[in-house]
Design a protein around this nucleic acid. Structure first.
Lengths: 332, 332
DNA sequence: CTGAAAGCGCTTACAG
DNA sequence: CTGAAAGCGCTTACAG
């Protein structure tokens, strides 16, 4: 697998490497004669030349690589984001590295180091809990980064997110209007700000009503079991109840509990879930859910990152997108 | 974002770059005195040195990057594979580039070029229809590649796959034992060999029986609509029928049709689907499905690729894994 | 219009 | 035990 270099082209075409480089990069300024231009192009094609971007990267201090770090690329939500980011990155001339950190701050840190060693021009990050040290290091180095989905409590960074607080208020509002006896919020036992926002928005709206609210919080791992146990304990079917699952994984785990226990939606209990996933469509009732504008978010994240790469700036502009409450038939 | 280099370390520590390089790479052969070693390490830490892998790559002609090209990373099946490949790649010391080609041979070709320009040491490919030219080019360049999930009809390449033909035979066998009046095979209208194998295995087994078989083949895009239309036309509920959906996407689209039309499984119709996906668990009946050993396959693909990178060989060893038929309650 | 030369950040035989 | 030097494949100011 010996690859041809511009040196080879130069030798065969009988010109200097500088000239080859110029025509291959079709620079306007210095014009090369049509004749040598054509010859070089022909030779390049003949010997099947592919540019070595690594050499170019080294010289230019630009790798045209960007890194994406999410909790888990096999999670529907992140793989959809990744896909949109990939498309946008390609359009913008970047190739995408992907890493999954499993909500583990050490892994998160390692991944940023690895990517930084690979000289990615910037990173799109969904930061995990306790990742402040890593992030601060990146900031100290003035490494271009933007956040997606999540954000950091104490650190201002450019990034994209949704109106977590407000959309939860809306959900709660909607449920309050329907006069439920009990509202159950299902979320994670976590410090992640964007998830706390979802919780707080819901709580704040429920506070001033006289509805009974319950809360189910699970760890990140073993969601299914924990939800099943807690729903069994807390779901009282004698009351008119609505459940709000605040993520796709929680929604899937919760709906599975309902299916397994033959609890009908919305007859026995009403349900709202977060994020859109194919799985919801196999549930016997069309599930009402919160849709995030993933494509726009992905597009904006790449745009923000690109502008950070081109012109690094300390103050981070955060773009907030509005999630959409898609009403189906799972709320009575 | 000026990064420190070994030159900086050398200057500060008052040694040569060669010496720095030696201690940073902790080479055994040439021993450096404990004193200078410690000094260098200390300086490196102080100025927050991170190695520039791009420079190293250029010198070593090894990027420690590998590329993965799939049809669509947002497809559950591929994102699960990608995750397992990522884990295995990391363990083996590689970082992963990911690209989606949407079953489009041009895009597939472009992606391989892009990855090759980025000097990936090798690629794991799920080749699309009409990608022979691209693959042959790669082979001519002796570029280390392995296939995953799919394989090529006319080209022998190292790769991993499952026993598509045999598992379909097994499914058919199982259904034949249950004495259905009609069997419906749902697949893609495609030339992809691994999918034709699924079809052929099913057909071959059904051939010698006196069951009526029908076939529904859809295009790759717009699966949902096509399946709905064809199921409406071909599914005869007066007969005792079983449907075999030969991919996760087909399964999801098909099950959705059944849900939407209030067709009960397995009372009205029996169902077997391919691949495991969370979605199946939200379906009111536990769906019987074919499970591919994704982790093992991913692991093996990285292993195969790594050995190709280390020592390129023309003849491709193909590893075939056995899929597992997981029986649940969707077949009467 | 074209080329010689320096340099990006590394590694590694070679010499001392 | 340590350093000077060449070279990986590019780009680009500079000179001619």
């Amino acid at each position: 697998m010996k690859r041809a270099s511009i040196k080879d082209i130069a030798r065969i075409a009988g010109v200097s490497v500088a000239t080859v480089s110029y025509v291959l990069n079709k620079k306007e300024g210095s014009r090369i004669s049509e004749a040598t231009r054509d010859k070089i192009l022909e030779v390049a094609k003949n010997i099947n030349y592919t540019p070595n971007k690594i050499a170019k990267s080294l010289k230019m201090s630009k790798s045209k690589l960007i890194g994406l770090i999410v909790a888990d690329i096999s999670n529907d939500f992140y793989s959809n984001i990744a896909r949109s980011i990939e498309d946008e990155a390609m359009k913008t001339g970047y190739t995408l590295l992907i890493g999954s950190c499993d909500e583990n701050p050490e892994k998160f840190g390692k991944l940023t180091e690895l990517f930084s060693e690979q000289q990615v021009d910037g990173m799109i990050l969904a930061p995990v809990a306790d990742s402040d040290d890593t992030i601060n290091r990146l900031i100290r180095e003035e490494y271009p980064i933007v956040t997606i989905d999540r954000y950091l409590k104490n650190i201002d960074l450019p990034g994209v997110m949704i109106n977590n607080f407000e959309i939860s208020e809306q959900i709660c509002e909607h449920l309050l209007m329907k006069k439920f006896d009990e509202l159950i919020y299902v979320g994670y036992d976590t410090e992640l700000p964007h998830l706390l926002d979802r919780q707080d928005g819901f709580d704040k709206r429920a506070e001033n009503s006289n509805v009974t609210t319950k809360r189910i919080l699970t760890g990140i791992h073993n969601i299914t079991d924990e939800i099943h146990q807690q729903l069994k304990k807390k779901l009282d079917l004698s009351k008119k109840t609505a459940i709000y699952f605040s993520s796709n994984k929680l929604g899937i785990a919760g709906l599975r509990y309902l299916i397994d226990n033959n609890i009908k939606v919305p007859e026995d209990v009403s349900v709202v879930a977060f994020d859109e996933t194919e799985a919801y469509y196999l549930f016997p009732t069309e599930v009402s859910f919160v849709r995030q504008p993933l494509e726009e978010m992905a597009r904006e994240s790449v745009k923000l990152l690109d502008s950070q790469i081109i012109n690094y700036t300390k103050e981070g502009k955060r773009a907030t997108f509005n999630a959409e409450f898609v009403k189906r038939n799972s709320v009575i």
